[in-house]
Amino acid sequence: MADKNVSMRTPLSRVKGLGAAGHGVEHWWVQRLTAVANVPLLIAFVIIVAALAGSNYARALAIVSHPLIAIILLLAVISVVNHMRLGMQVIIEDYVQDNGWRIVAVVANNFYTAVIGAACVFAILKVSLGRILL
């Protein structure tokens, strides 16, 4: 059978299925992946925050720096920050019509989420690392 495919796309391009943007379904997939991770992580987060409510400094430090709590918080921050970056990008792409402003907004979104992520990760590590409860 003769090849009737007159598409400009190469067979390799079709097999990879990454499309024009070169990312394929990555955005959609990571949005779901982080959403699945968020459910248990945020249930744990709510319990941790409830325990932290009204704590004095020593108690708050002891809770956050506990290895299990710190690991859960770090995982939650990483998952949430990626999830909200992807979600906000979709909102920006849907509603900001001007090309220039859209790029500015997407860049600002990346910067804001990076700052939040770095601040949370640094703070958790700073109060946790080197603190061994004797």
């Binding site: 956050v64 601040a119 949370c120 640094f122 703070a123 700073k126």
Partner: peptide
Amino acid sequence: GIALFAIWLVALA
């Protein structure tokens, strides 16, 4: 809103 949690954590640190 998550900025509030970041502020709380940085304050702790």
